[in-house]
Simulated assay, not measured.
Amino acid sequence: MKHCFLCLSMMLLVACAQTGPATGYDEPTNRSDPNSPAMLNVRMGVAYFERQDYDLALEKLKRAIAMDPKLAIAHSALALVYSTMGAGNEASKHYKASVKFAPNDPIILNNYGTFLCQQGDYKKALEFYQRTLANPFYKTPETVHENAGVCLMKDDLFDEAERHFRAALSVNPEMTVSLYNMAILSAGQDRPLKARAFIQRLSRLQALDERMLTVAYQVERKLGNENEANKYLTQLRKLK
């Protein structure tokens, strides 16, 4: 089963990466019978969250926890609702509970790492990302590497960020956030040929935004390719 509430959580990191995607979600293993009343309330809570009906989402998820206080997925979902509503303290409480009741579940650990990074606790976030990556059965390590890379970028740890972006791309060459940030890093480290390669790969997957068009323009100027530079400049002017 896949849930969109983690997709939305991941989208927040994508936005951070591009101002500086959404991915699938495998349900945590720490849960009760999928047809239990608690899990039914979790599913209803997620559905209400997707519709942005946060009050009903809270009601259903709180009911799930009342039925099964150790249900990690319910705590993780409730934490995301609170985080989306700006209730950081409540979100933190339930993320901690989810980790307490599913300490080895990589999905739970990744969720909490994402929250910590959004809160600016980068070092602790990286600890949880590393714990997630340590699980050999985690199905999408590239998303965790990408999250870790974004978090390290926000902490100005560029060499470590590059290592994670490259790891993500080695698993899935179409990770757009990793391509985006590798272009930024390569340009900033005076590696214009590498930057160009990442920009070209990214442009085959999505339209370039204003920041990336600016980088592309600067890279082509650096390489002495005025024709290509002017093409990017034209695209930039159309965005103004």
Rank of each mutant, 00 (worst) to 15 (best):
N30Y: 09
S203Y: 01
H3N: 10
N110G: 04
R191W: 01
T140L: 12
Q118P: 00
F115K: 05
A167Q: 11
F101D: 01
A216D: 04
P37L: 10
L12V: 14
T143E: 13
D55P: 01
A168Y: 05
R63P: 02
Q130R: 15
S9V: 07
A64K: 08
T132A: 09
L179D: 00
L179K: 00
I107A: 11
D68W: 04
T23V: 08
S83C: 02
L185W: 03
G224R: 07
Y138I: 15
S203L: 01
K70R: 15
N181C: 11
Q189C: 02
P21V: 08
F115Q: 07
F5K: 03
E220D: 09
L223S: 02
P21A: 09
T19Q: 14
A148Q: 07
V144H: 03
L116V: 06
T29W: 08
E210W: 00
S76V: 09
E50C: 14
S83Q: 09
N230G: 00
Y54D: 05
G149S: 06
A91M: 11
K62M: 14
F115L: 07
L239E: 02
C4L: 08
P136I: 15
G20A: 13
M44V: 02
N135R: 12
A91N: 13
R196Q: 09
R211M: 01
A79T: 04
Q189E: 13
A102C: 14
K231C: 01
L185T: 06
G24L: 11
Q218L: 13
I107K: 10
M11V: 06
F165Q: 01
N147H: 12
M175P: 00
C117E: 04
N110Q: 12
T23W: 11
P28M: 06
G113T: 02
V144R: 04
E146Y: 05
Q52R: 10
F198R: 02
E228R: 15
F101V: 02
S92H: 14
L208S: 04
V99R: 11
R131Y: 04
L58Q: 14
Y25C: 15
R204L: 06
L8W: 04
Q52K: 10
P21Q: 14
G24M: 10
K240P: 00
F137E: 15
V99M: 03
A57M: 10
L6I: 15
K123C: 04
I73Y: 10
N147Y: 05
A229Q: 07
F198A: 06
N172Q: 11
L169Q: 08
Q235P: 01
Y232E: 02
G88H: 07
N225G: 03
S36T: 02
F115M: 08
G20T: 14
E142G: 08
T29M: 11
G86A: 04
R166Q: 13
E27M: 10
D33G: 00
K139N: 13
R63T: 14
Y25A: 14
K123L: 13
G224A: 10
G224Y: 12
V219S: 07
F5M: 08
P37M: 07
A77M: 11
R131N: 08
L236C: 03
L80I: 09
L179Q: 03
V99K: 02
A64W: 04
K100Q: 15
G188C: 05
V81C: 05
P103C: 15
M1N: 06
F198Y: 15
E90C: 00
C16L: 11
F165H: 05
H94T: 12
A74N: 05
P37T: 04
Q189V: 02
